[in-house]
Design a protein around this nucleic acid. Structure first.
Lengths: 227, 227
DNA sequence: TAGATTGTTAATCGATTAACAATC
DNA sequence: TAGATTGTTAATCGATTAACAATC
């Protein structure tokens, strides 16, 4: 079976695809230093994984390295971008222009990787019509039209939990291909819509869980304050 | 081996702990509806996992259910909070008061789960001294003192990639127990410091990857615009 | 009681690591 | 050439699912 067939049959572990992004980030930072090749061992070391894992992750998608040499940095950047689909511009709709939505809009990291927020929506009359960075915040009822007109295929949701499913449904009917959700709910979506969700509170709870675990594992290390 | 021993020996899959947060979120929303018990099957259905997984995840930490009945919602909420360590207040330092930092500070979801941002730091003279929600943004050089004084054990980093490692080192020397990082870098931290990281661009890249995969799997479903 | 549901063991499935021939 | 490093197979490790006796 070819690497292409593997990919299209979903045999790529999700975690492998996530690491690809990390490899890309590191390769981009290396490029600035002028380095031209890197071995799986060096890349692994920088990211805290094993060299075998780096080679295996890349192996899911093709043969990019040179035995005895390593990987050519420029070339690998181009290849990973192709794999991730960031060798193009994605137009993104931002739904919800509260404080988180506004922060995400101002975040320059997205544009740098080819994600362009090209429309903003809210249901709050107080912000609808407001100009932000060359755009106007639109009424959420205009979603379907704007998505079709603007060749928008991704949506970022920064809305409260209460309206999240409703907004997701609207994005799906509008014909969006993928949703990036910040509302703390598990969305119900059709199989043909891609879905990534970040629940900030869940992550913070994981942190407190890990802190607790560390303290339990090493009860003599951290007597805490007052001793 | 007891459930407690398992936990302290790190035999709990990380993914199981993450799902605990999702169970908690759903249980809290159920409580409002007045329901008093729930079965693993119902909980599983709501969150898109299997019933066996719900029971197994909870089983890592103890026996909370009643055969033939299910789980008592109020009780399970209390137990999961204990497990996650959110049965108490955590004082949190926010480092970096740019647009993301400001959005995180305004986000009410943290306080609701017991995470209180009790100090804010930045290195930018333009924001140092600025009053925000009853706090003053402090110079980052005051970190160590404030952490000790304020019983702060967690740090949220909303700083640029360039200064992230430096800030992390400062948090570690200040005696912080856990770091929640938003900078797009892999931090180098001692083993005894808990660590959760969110790289927004990585997540958006995963979304574009999944969209691409869906399109490749169903080439006849989405002819795209222009047809 | 009969039906429902847990907690847990064993079976399955998937992901990571180790090892090494092929290659530069 | 000798040393380095890839790509890939096989072995290991870990997580999920299925099954079912125990229990209410």
């Amino acid at each position: 079976m070819s690497a292409d067939e593997k990919e299209s049959q979903n045999l790529v572990p999700k975690a492998a695809a996530a690491r690809l992004s990390l490899y890309l980030r590191h390769l981009e930072s290396l490029r600035i230093t002028g380095a031209s090749t890197i071995s799986s061992k060096e890349l692994a070391r920088a990211l805290g994984v094993t060299a075998a894992q780096v080679r295996k992750d890349l192996g899911y998608f093709g043969q990019f390295g040179f035995p005895g040499i390593g990987y050519k940095i420029e070339n690998l950047i181009v290849e990973i971008r192709k794999i991730l689909g960031t060798d193009r511009i994605w137009n993104v709709a931002l739904v919800g222009y509260g404080s988180l939505g506004a922060a995400l809009f101002r975040y320059r990291g997205f544009e740098k990787q080819g994600f362009r927020i090209s429309a903003i929506f809210d249901n709050n009359p107080a912000v609808i019509g407001q100009p932000v960075g060359g755009l106007l915040v639109k009424n959420i009822t205009a979603l379907a039209h704007a998505v079709a007109e603007g060749d928008i295929s991704l949506g970022i949701m920064a809305v409260p939990a209460e309206t999240a499913q409703e907004v997701a449904d609207a994005l799906v009917s509008a014909g969006i291909s993928g949703i990036f959700n910040f509302a703390p709910v598990v969305l119900n979506l059709p199989e043909n819509v891609a879905y990534v969700s970040i629940d900030l509170t869940v992550q913070l709870e994981q942190l407190s869980f890990h802190v607790k675990q560390l303290r339990e594992d090493a009860p003599f290390e951290d007597p805490g304050p007052g001793i």
